[in-house]
Amino acid sequence: MFWSWHEFFSELTTAGFAHAAWATLWSASVVEAAAVVGGFLLVAVGRSSVGALRLLAGIYVWLWRGTPLLVQLLIVYFGLPQFGIRLGVIGSGIITLALNESAYIAVLAAAALRAVPPGQTDAAMSLGLPAWRRFRYVIFPQAFRVFLPVLGNQYNAMLKTTSLLSVISFSELVEFAQSQVSLTYQPSEAFAVAALYYLALTLAWSGLQKIAEARFATVRPAGRRLARDLLLPARTKAAIT
């Protein structure tokens, strides 16, 4: 049968789907958090004064961004055991996704740093700030505002990218939906439920992102008064009103 509402609601209320959604959520969160650390490290290496290090960081980005994630995943999961490196399903999945995402985060973070006008560095230097303080108090806060929405989008995409882990049998939403289909032979309903879970996750995240962006915005349009008053701590509010 093509569609049965009864089957759809019984799938929707299966505890297994909620567990699988949790697996999607935590794997995406762990990967993205690790990738932010990895990406920032890559930017640091890519901007080092040593030419060889800069070249290495560039080659890393080229290799990880120039090949499909699915191939990288299968190489780590099926290929590396040939050398005695067995990371298991979760280990291979998380590590590969994090190494891949690090390359993308590095490129985006570098772009955010470039978005800060060079005059800011000049001004900070003319005030006599040493390099670290220039970065910490002048460049980073401005680049961070550019980077935050970009990072939010990356996390949104990562919620969906973790579906590739189903191929190495990590039990997230897509893998669980497939295992349900092999039990019930009712693909439409199981895949629809998985899709609903993804939509719920990505829409909830977009909502949170909007709130966070309103919180970190420097200029707020007049129509956003309510959001500002709700979200800003009293001290900041006093400073701008």
């Binding site: 579906s163 590739l164 897509v174 993804y198």
Partner: peptide
């Protein structure tokens, strides 16, 4: 844009014949 492309492909593959 809100669901994974892999899920979409598997769904097309499984559901189209049923339809």
């Amino acid at each position: 844009r809100g669901t994974p492309e892999l899920l979409q492909l598997i769904a097309w593959y499984a559901v189209l014949p049923l339809a």
